[in-house]
Amino acid sequence: MARAGITVDRLVAAAADLADEVGFDKVSLSALARSFGVRDASLYSHVRNLQELRTRIALLAGGEMIDRIAAAVAGRAGKEALTAFAGAYREYALAHPGRYAATQIRIDPVVFADTPAMRRTAEITYGMLRAYGLEEPDLTDAVRLLRSTFHGYCALEAAGGFAAPRDVRRSWDKAVDALHTALTHWPREAGHAPTGKEHESHA
Rank of each mutant, 00 (worst) to 15 (best):
T121L: 01
R188G: 01
G5K: 14
G133R: 15
Y92P: 02
Y44T: 07
E157N: 14
P109A: 06
A84S: 07
A155L: 13
A71N: 13
P137Y: 10
W172R: 10
D9A: 15
Y100M: 01
S45G: 14
G133N: 14
W172E: 02
F36I: 07
A158F: 03
S148P: 09
L18C: 06
L179D: 01
T103A: 04
P137E: 14
A41C: 00
M128H: 06
E135H: 14
G133T: 12
P137T: 10
L94M: 08
S35T: 12
F24I: 00
V168Y: 03
A15F: 02
G133M: 04
D25R: 15
A175P: 01
G160R: 08
L53W: 04
L156M: 11
V12P: 08
V73P: 04
F112C: 02
T184S: 13
A122Y: 02
D138P: 12
K79V: 02
T7M: 08
Y92N: 10
D40A: 13
N49L: 03
D25S: 15
A31N: 14
A117C: 05
R34S: 14
P194L: 05
G191V: 00
H151D: 12
I105L: 11
T103H: 06
K197H: 11
R3T: 10
A19F: 07
V111T: 13
A14G: 07
R10N: 08
G160N: 09
A71Q: 14
L129I: 06
Y126N: 12
R54M: 03
E91N: 11
A71S: 12
T181F: 05
K197V: 02
G98Y: 10
M65H: 11
A33M: 07
I66N: 09
K197A: 03
A19G: 07
A158M: 08
T115Q: 13
A41I: 06
G191C: 02
S42H: 14
D20T: 11
A77W: 07
G161A: 07
T125N: 07
R68A: 10
F112M: 01
A142T: 09
D108C: 01
T55F: 00
E123Q: 15
T125H: 04
G160E: 12
R39H: 13
K197R: 15
P187Y: 13
V110L: 08
H185L: 05
V143Y: 08
L60Q: 12
A95H: 13
A31E: 12
D138K: 13
A77V: 05
P165D: 02
A2L: 12
V8C: 05
D114W: 10
R188K: 14
S35H: 12
A178R: 09
G127K: 09
F85V: 00
E198R: 15
G23M: 06
A19I: 00
P109C: 05
K197E: 11
D40F: 09
P137A: 14
S45F: 09
F36M: 08
R90V: 00
A117E: 10
E200P: 00
V47F: 09
A14P: 01
R68S: 09
R56T: 02
Q51A: 08
A15Q: 07
A19D: 10
V111L: 06
G152A: 10
A33V: 04
R76T: 06
E123D: 14
I107Y: 14
L11P: 04
A93D: 00
L129Y: 02
R90K: 15
T184D: 10
A182K: 13
E52Q: 15
F24L: 04
T181W: 13
E21A: 09
L145M: 13
